[in-house]
Simulated scan of single mutants.
Amino acid sequence: MTDSIENLRAAERLAWARAALGHPSVELERASTDAGFRSYWRTVGHTPSRIVMDSPTDKEDVRPWLRMRDVLEAAGVRVPVVLAQDVDKGFLLLEDLGVNTYLQDIDAHNADAFFDAAIMQLIKLQKVDAPADLPRYDDEMLGRELHLFDTWFCGTHLGLSLSCEEMEQLDAAYRFLINNALAQNAVLVHRDFMPRNLMQADNGPAVLDFQDAVVGPIAYDVLSLFKDAFLSWPPERVDAWLQRYHAMADAEGLPVPALDAFVRDAELIGVQRHLKVIGIFARLHHRDSKPKYLADVPRFFDYLEGVLPKYPELSALAAFVHARVKPAMHALENAPQAPAA
């Protein structure tokens, strides 16, 4: 049944692309997928090549993506150009920005220049006058994200059963993180502003995957940029880039606090994000059959180990990770593998 549905969707996607381009012999090849339900397809046999975004309407409405794209473009943020659209079918025809994102192109030698360009785009994004009905990164959302860690990673993935005392300790750490996030000045937040969602382009980099934007803590996106899900940098370089962002944001009139307070805010919102992403990666594996993301979970524990000891309010969280989570991870990694069916 699944194969039949996918084949029907593929035929519909190809027919739509041919009609949108006015080119009856064009073909499509897979360009990329993301952690959601969208997929991207590059045209073959047509110059210049284009990208078809396929967003199945029963799984992921394309209209939030289009709406936020228009908001960002109006504010001068570089976003993909839309050449044709059919929101009822969930198809968009986009400019082709190439094969590589920042994730494939950035390295130790070009990182300063790449991140300077990314910061300039981020500042434009943060200066956007967000729509009044845009969701806020409020108490409920922050808490729901944090509980992905204990629910999906600790519970579902590691099989841990947490005691009432352990949950109380986690809840106290969560409350500390939430209070810090809510105390930060609020701006438009992309929520995944990282190298994988940036592509080199004229007047760029181009910003991708912005449909889940909210209004929230000013330190969130810049921390996401430098403590990425798929790429790690030496702490001293991260510190320098945070200072660079702070200076540029302050010069542009964004409401950043003094540098020391900003670094603290970035570190603490980073802990919230790291716990959330660890939970999301476990959910992608167990619920959505996308196991590859789990390989990057240790990176987030490395990030946590660099921050948790600095804050007494997070000592119980640090102890929980050390005493319960790490041993369970080690046991899972060393467990005998079931034979293939």
Rank of each mutant, 00 (worst) to 15 (best):
Thr2Lys: 12
Glu12His: 11
Arg13Ile: 08
His23Trp: 02
Thr33His: 10
Asp34Asn: 11
Ser39Asp: 12
Trp41Ile: 03
Gly45Asp: 11
Met53Phe: 04
Pro56Lys: 12
Thr57Gln: 14
Asp58Ala: 15
Asp58Ser: 14
Val62Ala: 15
Arg63Ile: 07
Met68Leu: 07
Arg69Ile: 00
Leu72Ala: 02
Ala75Lys: 01
Ala75Gln: 00
Gly76Cys: 01
Val77Ile: 01
Pro80Tyr: 04
Pro80Cys: 05
Pro80Phe: 03
Asp86Thr: 12
Val87Asp: 10
Asp88Trp: 03
Asn100Asp: 15
Ala108Lys: 08
Ala108Pro: 06
Ala108Leu: 10
Ala113Val: 01
Ile119Ala: 08
Leu122Glu: 00
Lys124Asn: 01
Gln126Met: 00
Lys127Pro: 00
Val128Glu: 05
Val128Asp: 04
Ala132His: 11
Leu134Thr: 09
Asp138Asn: 15
Glu140Phe: 14
Glu140Arg: 13
Phe149Asn: 15
His157Lys: 10
Gly159Arg: 04
Leu160Ser: 03
Ser161Ile: 01
Ser161Tyr: 08
Ser161Asp: 14
Leu162Phe: 03
Ser163Pro: 00
Glu165Phe: 02
Met167His: 05
Ala172Gln: 09
Tyr174Phe: 10
Phe176Gln: 13
Leu177Asn: 13
Leu177Lys: 13
Asn179Tyr: 07
Ala183Asp: 14
Ala183Pro: 11
Ala186Val: 04
Met194Thr: 04
Arg196Val: 00
Ala201Lys: 11
Asn203Cys: 01
Ala206Cys: 04
Ile218Gly: 02
Lys227Trp: 00
Asp228Cys: 01
Phe230Asn: 14
Pro235Met: 07
Ala240Glu: 12
Tyr245His: 00
Pro255Val: 02
Val256His: 15
Phe262Asp: 06
Val263Ser: 04
Ile269Gly: 14
Val271His: 08
Val277Phe: 05
Arg283Pro: 05
His285Val: 03
Lys290Asp: 12
Asp296Thr: 00
Pro298Asp: 07
Arg299Asn: 14
Arg299Val: 10
Asp302Phe: 09
Leu308His: 07
Tyr311Glu: 07
Leu314Val: 05
Leu314Asn: 08
Ala319Phe: 04
His322Asn: 15
Arg324Asp: 08
Val325His: 13
Ala331Lys: 06
Leu332Cys: 07
Ala340Arg: 13
Ala341Asn: 11
